[in-house]
């Protein structure tokens, strides 16, 4: 089924030379029935239809942002990775094959951008000279976490490769075949990563949930 944007509509603003796009807010919706997009839209974007490209961005940006945020643990880094991803998609749409599905293609680019961002941050952090950590009184009240924060903390404690596999499989609901395309990792290894991630989450969250 073709996806039609209802929440945000990107339109060409012909009356303002130099400004191609404007965003018009519309009625808010939060849930989509479909996780993939009408395959005609990426092909239209590839053939130079800028409105189709805007539809792609509008359709996928929330999932991309969620994935990047969980993977990178930082809102600003996540937004930058998602922006880089879509610019890269735009620049390489001519390489998108008509018989391919857009979703794994997009997520592969996004996963690579996230890895790059993570590596960049790791190098940056390695240059920081760490000082003495502030002492915390043993009886200081700990901040209370709601359930989502507990889950996010548990997710963040996973090794990056397990976190990536868990997010793709259980949050983005992608098949192992798509995950193999996205990560370049063998199916058996991906299944093992997902299993280990689930085991770790289960162990940590069993009491809370």
């Amino acid at each position: 089924m073709a996806y039609r944007s209802r929440r945000v509509e990107a339109v060409a603003r012909k009356e303002s030379p130099g400004v191609l796009w404007a965003i018009q807010p519309a009625e808010p919706t939060t849930v989509r029935a479909s996780t993939d997009i009408d395959p005609a839209i990426p092909l239209r974007a590839r053939n130079g239809d800028t409105e189709a490209f805007a539809e792609l961005v509008e359709f996928f940006h929330m999932r991309c942002l969620r994935y990047a945020r969980y993977l990178l643990g930082d809102e600003e880094d996540a937004e930058e990775a998602v922006q880089d991803t879509f610019v890269r998609v735009y620049d390489h749409l001519d390489q998108f094959r008509s018989d391919a599905r857009f979703e794994p293609w997009l997520f592969r680019i996004l996963a690579n951008r996230c890895r790059t961002a993570r590596e960049r941050r790791r190098r940056r952090e390695s240059l920081v000279i760490t000082g003495e950590l502030p002492a915390v009184a043993a009886d200081a009240p700990q901040p209370s976490l709601d359930m989502l924060e507990e889950v996010e903390a548990a997710l963040e404690s996973l090794p990056a490769e397990q976190r990536e596999a868990f997010l793709l499989r259980h949050v983005e609901d992608l098949s192992y075949e798509d995950m193999a395309v996205i990560t370049g990792v063998r199916l058996s290894a991906l299944r093992m990563r997902v299993k280990r991630a689930c085991d770790a989450l289960r162990t940590r969250l069993q009491q809370e949930m």
Binding site: A10, W21, A54, V57, H61, R63, R66, Y70, H170, V171
Partner: peptide, 28 residues
């Protein structure tokens, strides 16, 4: 339990018109 975890994580999804506008500006 894993399904509940995934459902909770999926909640963190909200439109970000500012990001959409930034992307479209960048490619424009």
């Amino acid at each position: 339990l894993i399904e509940r975890v995934a459902a909770l994580l999926r909640r963190r999804q909200s439109p970000n018109p500012r990001l959409v506008a930034r992307v479209l500006d960048a490619v424009d």
